[in-house]
Design a protein around this nucleic acid. Sequence first.
DNA 1: GTGGGAGACATTTTT
DNA 2: TGTCTCCCAC
Length: 750
Amino acid sequence: MNYLDNLNPAQKAAVLDTEGPVLVLAGAGSGKTRVLTSRIAYLIDEKHVSPDRILAITFTNKAANEMRERLISLVGDSAYVMWISTIHSMCVRILRACADKLDGYDKNFTIYSEVDKEHVIKRIISDLKYEDLPVKEAKYHISNAKNKDISPDRYAIEGANGDRNFDKYVKVYSVYEQTLKKSNAFDFDDLIVKALHLLRSDEDVLSYYADKFLYIHIDEFQDTNSTQYEIAKLLSSVHNNIFVVGDDDQSVYGWRGAEIKNILHFDKDFRTTKVHKLEQNYRSTKKILDLANTIIKNNSVRSKKVLWTDNPDGEKVEYFSGEEESNEAEYVCARIKNLVARGYEYKDFAVLMRINALSRSYEQEFTKYGIPFKVFGGFKFFERKEIKDITAYLRILVNPLDDEAVIRIINTPKRGIGDKTIETLLSYAQSYNFSVFDALCEVDMIPDLAPSARSRLKEFRTCISSLTMLSATSESLTDLINEVLVKTAFMSQFEIDTEENVSKRMNVDEFRNSVEEFVKLNPSATLEDYLSSVTLSSDIDEADSSDYVTVATIHAVKGLEFKCVFIVGLDEKIFPVSRANNELSEMEEERRLMYVAITRAQERLYLTRARSRYLYGERQGTVQSRFVKELSEKLGLPDDRPQRNSYENDVYRSYRSNDYDSAPRSTVSFGGSVSSFAKSYTSRSNAKVGKAPSSFEAYKPGKRVRHAKFGVGTIIQIKGSGQNTIADIAFKGVGVKSFSLAIAPMELLD
DNA sequence: GTGGGAGACATTTTT
DNA sequence: TGTCTCCCAC
């Protein structure tokens, strides 16, 4: 078998060890995905295991799709019937098949996203008159309890933590549970917990699945929580063939209930476990791996292993400290442009950050420099208001008990149903234990409603009923959505041509495209299937192979690799994040995250920070991240330099245009012109202390310029003003490019 | 019931 | 900075 020939002895041993519990401790870049796919192929090819009796759990949908693709190329189309998915998708599949065996639920349940969840909690808090209760905390308590499978009653006793509001949180949790049940809805945590309950409580269900899956595989095992682990134990209880792969050093989901002890103590739970260690890294250069090992050494809780590689030494890892976040981003742009000119493609680059909020300066600078990019993490497409609103209509058609969806769109688009009317409707529903939709069906019975409100509610009900009829008869999902848009006059909200409305209309269009795409790929899929896939999709799943720079949080790129990686925002309070200061375990998770970030890089690695940032509406000085300090010897940075944290100092220093904390100046070139880079510092700082920014009035359409890289060109268009002046310039043989006049290395000729 | 303006407040990471 | 909530005028 040629797929076995490509494995090293340690990998091969893991692949061939098919029977019983197996734990593979696989360092970053040690080929764990290859081991997983080779093993599954081996089971099918050599052991003649039927593909539908193999289960593989991955961490993202993207990873699942990729694994399926690889397996199709190894074993052919039989890979289609294999269960390869995230644990959440697997649970949905089980629940869609037998949720009706759980008391009070049905197979056409809705999955509530984080946004839905938040709305429900907000409403509960205000109903209970707990006005001051923070929604975020309530969310945390509920999730925390569910991740450990603790009911509200038990949480009241076991979860007590001395918080004076604790009893209120328990009450909110309890009402939340009832509310979701009444709505025939599951949140993300429920998908796992309720599937677990189902497997525990119904012997038929358990024996069906536990018998079905002869071989179970779990990737990224270090990030499973206790309920997920329970499901794995139950599913493997008949055949006992459970194969888990993970790396305790890459456990970065502790905040979501992931238990690092699941992997550290796996062999205690499964007594006959055979352990394999993969310690050879195939991904990164020696210099990059050296940094990774240096960082992770500082953690105390870990199983001892040291990654090594046969790869070449590679390029020196660069460190850059910018004056402000825009300069940090400019540095990244310059590096990318430079490397692209030397043969790299845009898709070889990733800009990784601890928090989503940092992505903005990269969006701006990349746009300015014409660098194609995609931002992952942060606001998801399907969580945008206009998209959530459309899907809410679809949700009602599938599950009329979905109160959250009904409340969401009862007055969207505006149809004159105000808060007062909605409140009356809700309390009527509540008093008879009806769903909101049920209450709508007997509008005439509701007391205290103005005649106008009554007729508007009826109108809304008629609208939904006619859509329900349509959903039963319409030919395709696409037709149905178009009908929804027409019948509800949905687009009328965005008629006026404001910038915002134009973008909303575009989003709706994009949404229709996504539906069409989905229908094409899954011809037999139902509306339920579409809605669950939308809710469960993460945006990294949307990553494709076209040529763009990836801008993402570190969490989002777990499991991926890039030739060149920028780890940006290396400031205290950003990375490590400010809240991590309290506990050692939190700080160690931050450090593991840094380890994950470093080990994404194959060939080149850049670490950057900014000495001041715009945060919370004001500019603040920052302090260099401790992680840079932990690496300073390896990076060749002088140690023990007193740390500055005063913004005043930074402004003063900017006039000296010293771009670096301490790295040698020669490591950077900016589009071939250091002076233009320095110029941008002075002018920006000027703008900030209130002096008039230098203007670029002499740059007008028709005038000619000379650019350091593209040569002579002609200005076509000028946009913006002052420091934000952007020029579109045509170059012979190059085409039209956009530049910021404040930064671009060029001079006016005419 | 709607819409605009003032003021408060926020940023961890995601299936 | 940008989003959300509250309050007031229509």
